[in-house]
Each structure stands twice: as structure tokens, then as C-alpha cells.
Nucleic acid binder design. Structure first.
Lengths: 206, 206
DNA sequence: TGTACATCAGTGAACGCGCGTTCACTGATGTAC
DNA sequence: TGTACATCAGTGAACGCGCGTTCACTGATGTAC
């Protein structure tokens, strides 16, 4: 699979990250173990310590990469004027869901592994960057709302993030709402649509 | 603490549930171990097996009780006509947040422990009951929306649940949004307010 | 091009630990007479 | 009321297991001459 260029294994750091992702996807964030990841990469557990300071460090690296990908996806979704500002947050919601689907291992490492975002400065920075993109999109959108009744941008970016996250957690996995007869995409799109109407950004009958 | 009436310990089943809750609250849902719970109840790990079939069974019982309390809280919040139907979902959001705060151990067991709701029929039933109360409140509220543009009740109860859940997960704990300078209560109340306005259930300038 | 040496990625064995679970037991409690 | 017995909640020791981490090592790779 991975090209064995360079030294012994070639690129064990990368291989370990990929192997760990597969383990997380299969066993869930709780069942993730350093030994499994090493075995899955065809390597002794001790070899991991050549590239990571330990289990948490490996997990943090995966989460960090997740936030990078996440931030890029959000940046793409909010677009730089290519998409009407109005539609930005609908696209954002879709992107959130798509990210959780396309990168389940990263997603779990970021949001369900119980990792502390402050333990690792690189991780904290990546998470901050992702949030900043969200908030910037909200600020752009904010200008279309009549001043005076305009909620702080950080506030309604929090709303969109919360609803997106809630839909993923509750309706895109095995949680209690799972039996609701709607696709997560439809729930989220309709929810954000209603919310944006409430902001006065969509006509009442759209 | 617990009255030592009756047999040896008195009421070990209850004591174990309470001890397990404390362990979960302190160590998080991942760090929960049967041995810790037993030790915290002042009892040998093996004693647990007189009352539960194993670790997962104990965890499931806690989650089950959580859903009972949760359902009761939701039923109280939605009220039976005592509160204007309009305000029902705002009260619901507040109740969701209050529940997560007041019963963190139950909440973690229900939503963050990775437990399968279908493993245990009692648990599945309790979760269903909680969801049913949510949906019933949505149906009552639904009658105030002009038919034709009225989304299915299960749909917008899903929206409220998702936003509430997202706010708790992201802003009521150590997750990425935590640095947003708003109280979770304010985020949720304002979010639900905007959403209800979008449904046409609140005046546009409320 | 060939040889000697230094580097260091990955090995393999070992560690101590806490875990969930089992099992024969014991002794306090409840019950029958 | 008192005694003999049955019950069964909790004990204590033991198990096998997988875990994260350490350490001295080895042997493939890169480098200097």
C-alpha cells in the first residue's frame, strides 16, 4: 500500500496515522488502542514511540489533521463570494455532515474520543482556526441583517454549529433519535432553512 | 449514607448505581470501570454480579434511569396546557440543558458512553418514551402552524433536540466551541427563539 | 568503486497494571418447627 | 422462646487478557574516506 521509500518501513508515521484511523472507524473511539494501530500497520507497538510520544499524541495528531480538513471543507463551503452569503450557512451545514461521513475516524477523534483540545498546542491552534472560519462566515452573513436586531456573529455561528453537530450525533449514528424517518441531510437542511428564515435572511415562504 | 436496612449491605443495587454515577462524573464515561464503582460502594467487584449481569448491564441501568428522569423533565417542561404551546420548546431547550447539568453522570451514560440503546430492551423502551414526549409536544405546537407549510412534527422536534444536544456537547463541556463568550443557556434560548420565529410561531421582532 | 563506520528505525522481550469475570467459600439473615 | 436448618449476599483469591510503556538490541541504510 504505502510506498516503502526511504528508511526501513518508509513512512511509518503516515502509515500509523492511517492504520489508527481504520482502527477508530472499526472499533469506535473508545476501543482505539495503540497496540491495535501498530499491529494494523504491521509493526511492533514499540515502533510507535519513534514517531509519537505516546497514545494520546497519536490521537491528537489525528484530531489535528481532522480540524485541518474540517477547516478546509468549511472554507470551501463558505466560499469567497462565489456563493451568495445567504446560502453560506446551508452549505456549511451540508459540509459539516459530509465531513462527518467522509472522515468518520477524524470526526470521532475530534469530537468523541474525549481528547483535550488544550493538551496539545498544535491541536488547539487547528481547532481555533476551524472555529475562526465559521465565525468569519457568520460575520459576512451578519451584514445582511438589519443592524440593531442583529445578533452577534459568534452567536449565530454557534447556533449553526450546534445544530449541525447535534444532527450528526443524534441522527447520523446509533443514538436515540436514530429511528426518526428522515435522512440527516434533510433534517439539517430544513432546520437551517427555518433558522435562517427566523433571522430574516430567507423569505417567509421559501 | 445509604441506610443499611435489610440484608448484608442493605441496598447494594442502589448503592452501586449511585457509586457508578459518581465515578462517571469524576472520570468521564470512558474511565468508568466496574471495579471502581464497586470499590466506591465499599464492596468487592464480584459482589456486583449479584445485582447486574456485568459492566454493560450496570451502565445500561444508569442510562435507563437517565431517560426516565429526562422524560419526566421534558413532560414537565412541555406541560399540559399550563404553558402556552408557543413557549413549550423554549422551555424544552432549557430543560435539556438543565438535565445535562443536574444529572451529568446519567447524561454521559446516555449520550457519551457509547452504549447501544438496543442491547437492552428496558433501555430502548425508556429512550423511546423520552422521544415520544418530545414528539407529542411538537405535534401540539404543530397545530399553530398554518397547514400546508407545516413541517412534520417529528421533523422540527428533531431540530430542537439536535440544537439542544449540540449546545450541550459543544458549549457546556471542553469541546472546541467552549471559548465562545456566551453562556450555553443564552446560546440555546436565542437559537430556539430564532428558529421558532422561522416557523412563524413568534413575531419577527420579538 | 569499495570499505569502515555511524546512525537510528524497528524488534522482541519484558514490566506492572487494572480490567471484567469465575468460583468455592462463609457467615449473617430469615424461616420452620 | 429456642434451636436447627436453608438461603443467598458478599468475600477473597485467582484467572487470563490486553493495555501502554521501557529497554537493550540488531541490522538496514546513509555517509566519509
Amino acid at each position: 500500500m504505502t510506498p516503502k521509500r526511504g528508511y526501513h518501513h518508509g513512512n511509518l508515521r503516515e502509515a500509523l496515522v492511517e492504520a489508527a484511523l481504520k482502527v477508530i472507524e472499526q472499533q469506535g473511539p473508545q476501543g482505539f488502542s495503540l497496540s491495535d494501530a501498530a499491529k494494523s500497520a504491521g509493526v511492533t507497538p514499540a515502533a510507535v514511540y519513534r514517531h509519537f510520544s505516546g497514545k494520546e499524541d497519536l490521537l491528537a495528531e489525528i484530531a489535528r489533521r481532522g480540524f485541518e480538513i474540517f477547516a478546509a471543507a468549511m472554507a470551501a463551503a463558505t466560499g469567497d463570494g462565489r456563493i451568495a452569503a445567504l446560502r453560506t450557512f446551508e452549505a456549511t451545514g451540508r459540509a459539516y455532515l459530509a465531513f462527518a461521513r467522509a472522515y468518520p475516524g477524524h470526526y470521532m477523534a475530534m469530537f468523541e474520543s474525549g481528547i483535550s483540545l488544550n493538551a496539545n498546542p498544535d491541536l488547539a491552534r487547528a481547532a481555533d482556526r476551524a472555529r475562526a472560519i465559521f465565525t468569519r462566515a457568520a460575520e459576512a452573513l451578519s451584514e445582511h441583517i438589519p443592524a440593531g436586531r442583529r445578533p452577534p456573529a459568534a452567536m449565530f455561528s454557534a447556533h449553526i454549529w450546534a445544530m449541525s453537530h447535534g444532527v450528526v450525533e443524534l441522527y447520523s449514528r446509533g443514538a436515540p433519535g436514530a429511528r426518526v424517518p428522515f435522512a440527516p441531510e434533510d433534517i439539517l437542511e430544513s432546520g437551517i432553512g427555518i433558522y435562517l428564515r427566523g433571522l430574516g435572511l430567507l423569505p417567509p415562504d421559501a
